[in-house]
Computed example of a mutant assay.
Amino acid sequence: MNALHTSVHHSAVFDHPEMGEHENIVFVQDKETGLNAIIAVHDTTLGPALGGCRVWPYDNPADALTDALRLSRGMTYKNALAGLDLGGGKAVIIADPRKHKSVELMEAFGLHVDRLSGTYVTAEDVGVSPEDMEAVARFTEHVRGTSATGLGDPSPYTALGVFQGIKASAQHVFGNDDLSGRTVSVQGLGHVGFDVARQLHDAGASLIVSDIHAPAVLKAIDAFGATAVDPAEAHMAEVDIFAPCALGAGLNARTIPQIKAKVVAGAANNQLQTPADGIALKKRGILYAPDYAINAGGVISIALASPGEDDQVVREKTMAIGDTLSAIFKRAETENSTPEQVADTMAEERLAKARLA
C-alpha cells in the first residue's frame, strides 16, 4: 500500500489556504481494493483526533484535500465546544459510495487508520454505514460508533441535537420554541436529515423537503405530508427556518441574498463558504446556528457511549446542545458578533486553557 500519487503537489499542501495548524496529513492508496484516501489530523491538544470517514466521488484529489482539511479543523472545534476530551481529524475516501464502496475497501482503510497508532480515531460520516464501520473495526481498534464500542449508528443523536438546536434558535428569534405552525425547509434527507424532518413533523411543523436522491423525497412526502422542491432551491423557500442537512458551503454570496427564512439551523458541516458569509447572514437579520455546535450529537454519542450501557448520559449531553446555542446567541448579541465567531472563541478558549495546563 503505497503513498497516493495525485495532482496534489508539495506546495499545494503546505501552502493550502486550509492548512492552518494541521499536525499530520496522510495520503493513502490500495491498488487491490481501489482505495484512495486522505486522512487529516488537525489537533490533538485535548486528546486523540476523532472525526468521521466520508466516502464521496470528488472531482479531483485537490477537492478531497480541501474537504479533509476543513472538516478536520471543524472537528477540533466541535469536540472542544462539546466538552469532549478529544482532538479533531477527518478522513475522506475518493469513491462513489453507491458504486465503488466494498467491504474490502473499508477493511483496507481500517488498516491505514491502525498505522496512525491511535492519533486518529475514525467513525461514520457521509457515504458510510454502520456496517462499513464494522469492516473498518476488523483491522483497527481506533474506531467508534460500532456495536462493540457502544451505541452503533450516531445519526439519531446528531438529529436529536439538531432538533434541540432548532428549538433554541426559534426561542431566540420568535420568543418561544413551539414549532407547531412553523414552516421548515429541510435540505438533504439522509439518515440525519430524515430524522430531523421526522422530529419537526412530530412537533407540528410544516415541511418542505429536498434531496438529490428521489426515493428519500418520496418517503418524506408520504410520511410527513411534506412538499418537495429542487435541492438547489431549498434555501429560497418561503419558510420560518431553513435546515441545511446535506453537504457544506451552501451558505454563500449567491444563496444568502435569496434566503427568506429568519433562522438557518441544520446538520450540514461547513455550511458557510467563507467567514464573510456569516457576517452577511447577520446583516440580513438571519440567525445562524453554528454547524459544529448544533450537529455535535453524533460525535457526543460515539465519544461517550459504552458497550452494554443505556444512552442516558449521551442523551443528556446532546440535549444540552440547545443550552450551548442559547449561550452562543446571547454572547453574540452582547459582543455584537456573529454566532460562529463566538462559537470559535469559546472553543479556542478551551484549547488555550488545555495548552496551559
Results as ranks from 00 to 15, higher is better:
Leu287Ser: 14
Gln271Pro: 06
Cys245Trp: 03
Lys283Gln: 15
Gly248Thr: 00
Ala234Lys: 05
Thr255Val: 06
Lys283Val: 09
Gly248Ser: 04
Ala228Met: 08
Ile286Gln: 07
Thr274Gly: 01
Ala243His: 05
Ile241Tyr: 10
Ala249His: 14
Val229Arg: 06
Ala243Phe: 03
Met236Thr: 14
Leu287Val: 15
Phe242Asp: 06
Ile279Lys: 12
Leu281Trp: 09
Ala234Trp: 07
Pro257Leu: 11
Asp240Pro: 14
Ala249Gly: 04
Ala268Asp: 00
Asp240Gln: 14
Tyr288Asn: 12
Cys245Phe: 02
Asp230Gly: 00
Asn269Phe: 01
Ala276Lys: 07
Phe242Tyr: 15
Ala237Thr: 03
Ala289Glu: 08
Asn269Met: 04
His235Ile: 02
Pro257Asp: 09
Val229Tyr: 05
Ala289Ser: 15
Ala280His: 12
Leu247Ile: 14
Asp240Ser: 14
Arg284Asp: 09
Cys245Tyr: 03
Ile241Lys: 01
Ala253Met: 08
Lys260Asp: 01
Ala289Val: 05
Ala246Asn: 05
Ile241Thr: 12
Ala261Ser: 11
Asn269Ala: 03
Thr255Lys: 06
Thr274Cys: 01
Ala267Val: 09
Ala228Cys: 10
Leu251Trp: 12
Gly250Arg: 03
Leu287Arg: 15
Arg254Val: 13
Ile256Ser: 10
Lys260Cys: 02
Ile241Cys: 10
Ala265Lys: 07
Asn269Thr: 02
Pro244Leu: 13
Gly278Glu: 12
Gln271Leu: 00
Gln271Gly: 00
Gln271Phe: 00
Arg254Asp: 10
Pro275Glu: 13
Asn269Tyr: 01
Ile256Pro: 13
Asp277Tyr: 11
Gly248Asn: 01
Lys262Pro: 01
Ala280Met: 15
Tyr288Glu: 06
Glu233Leu: 15
Ile241Trp: 05
Thr227Pro: 03
Leu251Glu: 12
Ala280Trp: 11
Gln273Arg: 13
Pro257Cys: 10
Arg284Ile: 04
Ala232Glu: 15
Ile256Tyr: 12
Gly278Val: 09
Ala243Glu: 07
Val239Tyr: 04
Ala265Tyr: 08
Lys262Ala: 10
Ala265Phe: 07
